[in-house]
Protein backbone atom coordinates (compact mmCIF):
# COMPACT_ATOMS: atom_id res chain seq x y z
CA UNK A 1 0.00 0.00 0.00
CA UNK A 2 1.37 3.44 -0.90
CA UNK A 3 1.95 6.19 1.67
CA UNK A 4 -1.44 7.82 1.33
CA UNK A 5 -1.18 9.99 4.44
CA UNK A 6 -3.87 12.33 3.14
CA UNK A 7 -6.38 9.52 3.44
CA UNK A 8 -8.54 10.51 6.38
CA UNK A 9 -11.07 7.68 6.58
CA UNK A 10 -10.85 5.20 9.40
CA UNK A 11 -8.21 2.62 8.63
CA UNK A 12 -9.34 -0.10 11.00
CA UNK A 13 -10.16 -2.32 8.05
CA UNK A 14 -6.42 -2.53 7.31
CA UNK A 15 -6.09 -4.73 10.36
CA UNK A 16 -8.56 -7.32 9.12
CA UNK A 17 -6.76 -10.56 8.45
CA UNK A 18 -3.62 -9.63 10.37
CA UNK A 19 -2.54 -12.54 12.53
CA UNK A 20 -2.81 -11.90 16.26
CA UNK A 21 0.81 -12.88 16.91
CA UNK A 22 3.48 -10.85 18.77
CA UNK A 23 5.60 -8.91 16.27
CA UNK A 24 3.30 -9.53 13.33
CA UNK A 25 3.85 -7.23 10.35
CA UNK A 26 1.08 -4.87 9.30
CA UNK A 27 0.03 -3.25 6.06
CA UNK A 28 0.98 0.34 6.77
CA UNK A 29 2.91 0.79 10.01
CA UNK A 30 3.65 4.31 11.26
CA UNK A 31 6.11 3.06 13.88
CA UNK A 32 8.39 0.04 13.47
CA UNK A 33 10.45 -1.15 16.43
CA UNK A 34 13.37 -3.54 16.17
CA UNK A 35 15.26 -5.07 19.07
CA UNK A 36 14.86 -2.30 21.63
CA UNK A 37 16.25 -3.16 25.05
CA UNK A 38 16.53 -0.89 28.06
CA UNK A 39 17.99 -2.12 31.32
CA UNK A 40 18.08 -0.43 34.70
CA UNK A 41 20.90 -2.14 36.56
CA UNK A 42 20.01 -5.83 36.42
CA UNK A 43 16.38 -5.22 35.43
CA UNK A 44 15.36 -5.57 31.80
CA UNK A 45 12.63 -2.94 31.72
CA UNK A 46 12.07 -3.15 27.98
CA UNK A 47 12.98 -5.99 25.63
CA UNK A 48 10.95 -5.75 22.43
CA UNK A 49 12.08 -7.81 19.42
CA UNK A 50 9.77 -6.47 16.79
CA UNK A 51 6.63 -4.38 16.89
CA UNK A 52 4.66 -2.45 14.31
CA UNK A 53 2.07 0.20 15.11
CA UNK A 54 -0.53 0.51 12.39
CA UNK A 55 -1.24 3.95 10.93
CA UNK A 56 -4.67 5.54 11.33
CA UNK A 57 -5.96 3.27 14.07
CA UNK A 58 -6.18 3.27 17.84
CA UNK A 59 -3.69 0.91 19.43
CA UNK A 60 -3.82 0.12 23.14
CA UNK A 61 -0.73 -0.86 25.11
CA UNK A 62 -1.68 -2.81 28.22
CA UNK A 63 0.10 -4.83 30.82
CA UNK A 64 0.68 -5.13 34.56
CA UNK A 65 2.41 -2.42 36.58
CA UNK A 66 6.13 -2.47 35.96
CA UNK A 67 5.73 -4.13 32.56
CA UNK A 68 7.83 -1.39 30.95
CA UNK A 69 5.05 0.45 29.14
CA UNK A 70 6.05 3.93 30.24
CA UNK A 71 9.74 3.21 29.71
CA UNK A 72 8.87 2.02 26.22
CA UNK A 73 7.01 5.31 25.68
CA UNK A 74 9.99 7.28 26.94
CA UNK A 75 12.37 5.44 24.63
CA UNK A 76 10.16 5.85 21.55
CA UNK A 77 9.75 9.59 22.15
CA UNK A 78 13.40 10.36 22.88
CA UNK A 79 12.96 10.96 26.61
CA UNK A 80 15.13 7.95 27.35
CA UNK A 81 17.87 6.18 25.43
CA UNK A 82 17.70 2.42 24.85
CA UNK A 83 20.74 0.18 25.29
CA UNK A 84 20.21 -1.40 21.90
CA UNK A 85 17.69 -1.25 19.11
CA UNK A 86 16.33 0.71 16.19
CA UNK A 87 12.97 2.27 15.60
CA UNK A 88 11.44 4.33 12.85
CA UNK A 89 8.59 6.79 12.58
CA UNK A 90 7.24 7.28 9.06
CA UNK A 91 10.26 5.22 7.91
CA UNK A 92 12.64 7.76 9.45
CA UNK A 93 15.00 6.37 12.08
CA UNK A 94 14.55 8.03 15.46
CA UNK A 95 17.66 6.60 17.04
CA UNK A 96 19.48 9.41 18.86
CA UNK A 97 16.88 11.99 17.85
CA UNK A 98 16.07 14.46 20.63
CA UNK A 99 12.66 14.48 22.30
CA UNK A 100 11.77 17.90 20.94
CA UNK A 101 12.69 16.84 17.41
CA UNK A 102 10.57 13.70 17.71
CA UNK A 103 7.62 15.91 18.65
CA UNK A 104 8.22 18.22 15.70
CA UNK A 105 8.27 15.20 13.38
CA UNK A 106 4.69 14.49 14.46
CA UNK A 107 4.95 12.01 17.31
CA UNK A 108 3.68 13.69 20.46
CA UNK A 109 3.18 12.16 23.88
CA UNK A 110 1.44 13.00 27.12
CA UNK A 111 2.60 11.99 30.58
CA UNK A 112 1.24 9.60 33.16
CA UNK A 113 1.70 12.28 35.81
CA UNK A 114 0.30 15.30 34.03
CA UNK A 115 2.71 18.04 33.15
CA UNK A 116 0.52 21.09 32.80
CA UNK A 117 2.35 24.34 33.43
CA UNK A 118 0.48 25.38 36.52
CA UNK A 119 1.65 28.99 36.64
CA UNK A 120 0.56 29.67 33.08
CA UNK A 121 -3.08 30.14 32.17
CA UNK A 122 -4.95 27.37 30.41
CA UNK A 123 -4.91 29.38 27.16
CA UNK A 124 -1.16 30.04 27.42
CA UNK A 125 -0.61 26.31 27.95
CA UNK A 126 -2.46 25.72 24.71
CA UNK A 127 -0.62 28.41 22.77
CA UNK A 128 2.69 26.93 23.85
CA UNK A 129 1.77 23.77 21.99
CA UNK A 130 1.82 25.35 18.53
CA UNK A 131 5.14 24.62 16.83
CA UNK A 132 7.31 26.78 14.61
CA UNK A 133 5.96 30.09 15.91
CA UNK A 134 7.69 33.15 14.57
CA UNK A 135 7.46 34.88 17.94
CA UNK A 136 9.44 32.07 19.51
CA UNK A 137 12.56 33.31 17.76
CA UNK A 138 14.64 35.70 19.86
CA UNK A 139 15.16 38.41 17.26
CA UNK A 140 11.49 38.51 16.28
CA UNK A 141 10.11 38.27 19.82
CA UNK A 142 10.35 41.96 20.85
CA UNK A 143 8.43 43.10 17.78
CA UNK A 144 4.80 42.23 18.32
CA UNK A 145 3.68 43.17 14.81
CA UNK A 146 5.83 40.32 13.48
CA UNK A 147 3.97 37.63 15.40
CA UNK A 148 0.63 39.14 16.37
CA UNK A 149 -1.31 37.69 13.43
CA UNK A 150 0.12 34.23 13.96
CA UNK A 151 -0.62 34.43 17.68
CA UNK A 152 -4.23 35.33 16.88
CA UNK A 153 -4.70 32.35 14.60
CA UNK A 154 -3.08 30.09 17.19
CA UNK A 155 -5.51 31.47 19.77
CA UNK A 156 -8.47 30.67 17.53
CA UNK A 157 -7.26 27.09 17.15
CA UNK A 158 -6.59 26.83 20.89
CA UNK A 159 -10.09 28.09 21.78
CA UNK A 160 -11.62 25.64 19.33
CA UNK A 161 -9.81 22.72 20.98
CA UNK A 162 -10.61 23.97 24.48
CA UNK A 163 -14.26 24.04 23.47
CA UNK A 164 -14.08 20.47 22.27
CA UNK A 165 -12.52 19.40 25.57
CA UNK A 166 -15.03 21.29 27.76
CA UNK A 167 -12.36 23.68 29.02
CA UNK A 168 -13.52 26.86 27.30
CA UNK A 169 -14.74 28.42 30.55
CA UNK A 170 -11.35 27.83 32.15
CA UNK A 171 -9.12 29.53 29.58
CA UNK A 172 -8.20 32.45 31.84
CA UNK A 173 -7.51 30.33 34.93
CA UNK A 174 -4.07 29.21 35.99
CA UNK A 175 -3.64 25.60 34.95
CA UNK A 176 -2.60 24.85 38.53
CA UNK A 177 -6.17 25.46 39.67
CA UNK A 178 -7.56 22.66 37.48
CA UNK A 179 -8.63 19.30 38.86
CA UNK A 180 -6.69 16.15 38.03
CA UNK A 181 -9.11 15.10 35.30
CA UNK A 182 -9.17 18.57 33.76
CA UNK A 183 -5.38 18.50 33.66
CA UNK A 184 -5.52 15.27 31.69
CA UNK A 185 -7.88 16.96 29.24
CA UNK A 186 -5.69 20.05 28.98
CA UNK A 187 -2.59 17.99 28.38
CA UNK A 188 -4.28 16.05 25.61
CA UNK A 189 -5.66 19.21 24.02
CA UNK A 190 -2.24 20.86 24.25
CA UNK A 191 -0.58 17.89 22.57
CA UNK A 192 -3.07 18.29 19.72
CA UNK A 193 -1.86 21.87 19.24
CA UNK A 194 1.36 20.34 17.89
CA UNK A 195 -0.68 18.78 15.03
CA UNK A 196 0.69 15.28 15.58
CA UNK A 197 0.36 12.34 13.21
CA UNK A 198 0.71 9.95 16.11
CA UNK A 199 -0.42 10.88 19.59
CA UNK A 200 0.77 8.76 22.48
CA UNK A 201 -1.34 8.98 25.61
CA UNK A 202 0.02 7.64 28.88
CA UNK A 203 -2.97 6.60 31.01
CA UNK A 204 -5.40 9.25 29.75
CA UNK A 205 -8.23 7.92 31.96
CA UNK A 206 -6.46 7.80 35.31
CA UNK A 207 -8.28 10.06 37.75
CA UNK A 208 -11.00 11.07 35.31
CA UNK A 209 -14.61 10.84 36.51
CA UNK A 210 -17.06 8.56 34.64
CA UNK A 211 -18.97 11.34 32.86
CA UNK A 212 -15.78 12.94 31.62
CA UNK A 213 -14.50 9.51 30.64
CA UNK A 214 -17.31 9.09 28.15
CA UNK A 215 -16.54 12.39 26.44
CA UNK A 216 -12.83 11.63 26.50
CA UNK A 217 -13.53 8.35 24.71
CA UNK A 218 -15.44 10.33 22.13
CA UNK A 219 -12.48 12.68 21.67
CA UNK A 220 -10.03 9.86 21.15
CA UNK A 221 -12.33 8.24 18.58
CA UNK A 222 -12.69 11.53 16.77
CA UNK A 223 -8.90 11.77 16.53
CA UNK A 224 -8.97 8.55 14.57
CA UNK A 225 -11.70 9.96 12.34
CA UNK A 226 -9.41 12.94 11.69
CA UNK A 227 -6.79 10.52 10.40
CA UNK A 228 -4.55 10.56 13.44
CA UNK A 229 -2.91 7.45 14.81
CA UNK A 230 -3.31 6.89 18.54
CA UNK A 231 -1.22 4.75 20.88
CA UNK A 232 -2.32 4.71 24.49
CA UNK A 233 -1.37 3.04 27.74
CA UNK A 234 -4.35 2.26 29.92
CA UNK A 235 -5.48 0.07 32.78
CA UNK A 236 -9.16 0.79 32.20
CA UNK A 237 -10.26 -2.34 30.32
CA UNK A 238 -13.63 -0.83 29.41
CA UNK A 239 -11.85 1.86 27.48
CA UNK A 240 -9.52 -0.62 25.83
CA UNK A 241 -12.45 -2.79 24.77
CA UNK A 242 -14.52 0.16 23.66
CA UNK A 243 -12.21 2.17 21.45
CA UNK A 244 -9.08 0.27 20.50
CA UNK A 245 -8.69 -1.40 17.13
CA UNK A 246 -5.61 -3.33 18.20
CA UNK A 247 -4.15 -4.25 21.56
CA UNK A 248 -0.52 -4.88 22.41
CA UNK A 249 0.20 -6.61 25.72
CA UNK A 250 3.48 -6.16 27.53
CA UNK A 251 4.70 -8.10 30.55
CA UNK A 252 8.17 -7.95 32.09
CA UNK A 253 9.41 -5.78 29.26
CA UNK A 254 8.33 -8.10 26.45
CA UNK A 255 5.44 -8.04 24.05
CA UNK A 256 3.59 -11.23 24.98
CA UNK A 257 0.56 -10.85 22.75
CA UNK A 258 -1.11 -8.57 20.28
CA UNK A 259 -4.34 -8.65 18.37
CA UNK A 260 -7.88 -7.27 18.18
CA UNK A 261 -9.40 -6.57 21.62
CA UNK A 262 -11.79 -9.51 21.59
CA UNK A 263 -9.11 -12.09 20.91
CA UNK A 264 -6.74 -10.49 23.44
CA UNK A 265 -9.34 -10.61 26.20
CA UNK A 266 -9.73 -14.34 25.54
CA UNK A 267 -5.99 -15.07 25.33
CA UNK A 268 -4.97 -17.32 28.23
CA UNK A 269 -1.46 -15.80 28.47
CA UNK A 270 -2.94 -12.32 28.85
CA UNK A 271 -5.46 -13.49 31.43
CA UNK A 272 -2.69 -15.13 33.44
CA UNK A 273 -0.27 -12.23 33.20
CA UNK A 274 -2.61 -9.33 33.59
CA UNK A 275 -6.36 -9.54 33.41
CA UNK A 276 -7.16 -12.24 35.95
CA UNK A 277 -9.87 -14.86 35.51
CA UNK A 278 -12.87 -12.70 36.45
CA UNK A 279 -12.07 -9.65 34.40
CA UNK A 280 -15.03 -10.12 32.11
CA UNK A 281 -17.84 -10.81 34.55
CA UNK A 282 -19.73 -7.91 35.97
CA UNK A 283 -20.31 -8.13 39.70
CA UNK A 284 -24.04 -8.65 40.27
CA UNK A 285 -25.94 -6.93 43.03
CA UNK A 286 -26.23 -10.09 45.12
CA UNK A 287 -22.53 -10.83 44.83
CA UNK A 288 -21.85 -7.24 45.75
CA UNK A 289 -23.91 -7.45 48.93
CA UNK A 290 -22.21 -10.75 49.85
CA UNK A 291 -18.83 -9.11 49.31
CA UNK A 292 -19.83 -6.11 51.38
CA UNK A 293 -21.03 -8.35 54.22
CA UNK A 294 -17.72 -10.25 54.15
CA UNK A 295 -15.73 -7.05 54.33
CA UNK A 296 -17.89 -5.77 57.15
CA UNK A 297 -17.45 -8.98 59.12
CA UNK A 298 -13.72 -8.78 58.66
CA UNK A 299 -13.63 -5.21 59.86
CA UNK A 300 -15.69 -6.10 62.92
CA UNK A 301 -13.34 -8.97 63.73
CA UNK A 302 -10.36 -6.62 63.45
CA UNK A 303 -12.13 -4.16 65.65
CA UNK A 304 -12.75 -6.76 68.36
CA UNK A 305 -9.17 -7.96 68.21
CA UNK A 306 -7.85 -4.50 68.90
CA UNK A 307 -10.21 -4.21 71.83
Amino acid sequence: MPDDMQDTRSRASDLVGVDPEPGVSKKDPIVVVDGITRTFGGLRAVDVDHLEIQRGVITALIGPNGAGKTTFFNVLTGFDQPDTGEWTFNKKSLKGVSASHVARLGMVRTFQLTKVLSKLTVLENMRLGATGQRGERFWAAPFRFLWKAEEDSITVRARDLLGRFNLAAKEGDFAGSLSGGQRKLLEMARALMVNPELIMLDEPMAGVNPALKQSLLGHVKSLREDGMSVLFVEHDMDMVRDISDWVVVMAQGRVIAEGPPASIMADQRVIDAYLGAHHDTDITEIEESVLAAEVEAELRADDEETR
Binding site: S98, S100, H101, R104, F111, R127, L128, E136, F143, A191
Partner: peptide, 29 residues
Amino acid sequence: WLLMRSPWGRILKSIREDEDAVRSLGKNV
Protein backbone atom coordinates in the same frame (compact mmCIF):
# COMPACT_ATOMS: atom_id res chain seq x y z
CA TRP B 1 9.10 43.48 29.04
CA LEU B 2 8.80 43.11 25.26
CA LEU B 3 10.53 39.74 25.32
CA MET B 4 8.56 38.31 28.21
CA ARG B 5 5.15 39.05 26.73
CA SER B 6 6.16 37.26 23.52
CA PRO B 7 5.95 33.56 22.69
CA TRP B 8 9.70 33.45 23.30
CA GLY B 9 9.18 34.56 26.89
CA ARG B 10 6.36 32.05 27.25
CA ILE B 11 8.80 29.26 26.46
CA LEU B 12 11.26 30.51 29.11
CA LYS B 13 8.54 30.64 31.76
CA SER B 14 7.42 27.16 30.77
CA ILE B 15 10.96 25.82 31.03
CA ARG B 16 11.11 27.25 34.55
CA GLU B 17 8.16 25.07 35.46
CA ASP B 18 8.69 21.83 33.60
CA GLU B 19 11.34 21.24 30.97
CA ASP B 20 9.98 17.88 29.88
CA ALA B 21 6.55 19.29 29.12
CA VAL B 22 8.17 21.90 26.88
CA ARG B 23 10.30 19.26 25.20
CA SER B 24 7.28 17.07 24.55
CA LEU B 25 5.75 19.98 22.64
CA GLY B 26 8.66 20.14 20.23
CA LYS B 27 10.67 23.03 21.64
CA ASN B 28 14.45 22.81 21.76
CA VAL B 29 14.79 23.48 25.48
